[in-house]
Design a protein around this nucleic acid. Structure first.
Lengths: 193, 193
DNA sequence: GTAGAATCGGAGAGATCCCTCCGGTTGCTT
DNA sequence: AAGCAACCGGAGGGATCTCTCCGATTCTAC
């Protein structure tokens, strides 16, 4: 899972510095423009020739993975950490809202979670399964605890999460008032008599 | 608003037939593939050269408008028809669910309503304003009737609608169980005690 | 049937985009 | 300081997309 093959010699200092700068610029570009941004454009914004950027990241997909995969893994780790929380409902809704809040500030994360349009990362399928599994465990506990509608399955919540991201991102762009996550979470709560 | 300039002579019969076929194929292609489908691809599927299709529709955007604008206007008309319904809550939620149900079956309609990624139609801005205004009227009446949370503004509901489309479309693609619209509508209802 | 106009078809211009290749430059080692 | 490996830069190949242009074809009117 490390970034370098430990057998390889360390990068030259200028190369290392440039690599960092590319990652920094790519991070900003992805956050604001999403997965549709072009490789050439990132190189341009960073002030490098495309050849330089390709030297560090063999493909567009690899660059995007380097920026985004860590963030996604963090969501999964958070869900796992909450799998044994004392209040399952609180754990489930808290995690759901946290994901929406953090991802909605980053266009590329939204694109990735929503899947479909962007390039599906190679390592993405395994990660996606982990994500769904972790979410599923939170959901099941919350349902047993009576905090969430019993008729929702993991995929339902995954789709609701995606929809919530769409809504929240736009709300955020206009300085939105009521957090969309609140409305959706209310809708997922167990039905009142 | 008519399709032809009434001063122009009628199209030759073969041209008219071809125009209809292009619209038919474009309709299907847009419904299944969304606004990202290429003009060349539509011409190919229809079995025409691109020049032929461009003869009928001067631009990609114009073709898409010809297919989609009518459907959008219908949503606005439906909302206006419900503006004086006896049960404002029922009118609001019924319209909301109907839009989600119809649009979620059509990728291009979703793209258009969600805005952002597709080409924003020239006539789209006016239509979008009409859409928002009609929705706003339904919302206000439903809120006065106590059926919907009072703290939601028109833009909130618009964003929720967009999010709901994202969720519903994916749920539909996998033969979804619980309609996402139901969850979101529940979330929009006035808070219980 | 035939002239003439309307229509068709697709090659290709111009713009991106992803990615490769290789000459010129820079930093590390002795 | 000099040699060499590592690195930079950007021209350009191949693909795709929107849209144009004009010769070839088809329909219509006489």
């Amino acid at each position: 899972m490390g970034d370098d093959h430990s057998t390889a010699r360390p990068l030259r200092v200028d190369a290392r510095r440039n690599r960092e700068r590319v990652l920094q610029i790519a991070q900003e570009a992805l956050a604001s423009d999403g997965l549709t941004i072009s490789f050439d454009e990132i190189a341009r914004r960073a002030g490098f020739g495309v050849g330089t950027v390709y030297r560090h990241f063999p493909t567009r997909e690899a660059l995007f993975e380097a920026v985004l995969l860590g963030r996604m893994e963090r969501f999964v780790a958070d869900a796992r950490a909450l799998a044994t929380a004392e209040d399952p409902g609180r754990a489930f809704f808290g995690w759901f809202r946290a994901v929406v809040e953090q991802a909605s500030a980053n266009q590329a994360l939204c694109d990735m979670l929503e899947g479909g349009q962007g390039p599906a990362f190679r390592s993405g399928t395994a990660l996606e399964a982990d994500f769904a599994a972790a979410l599923g465990r939170l959901l099941q506990r919350a349902q047993r605890g009576g905090a969430v509608r019993a008729d929702l399955v993991t995929e339902d919540v995954l789709d609701l999460l995606r929809g919530c991201l769409t809504a929240e991102r736009r709300a955020r762009a206009r300085g939105g008032g009521v957090p969309m996550a609140e409305v959706v979470c209310d809708g997922m709560r167990a039905h009142r008599g």
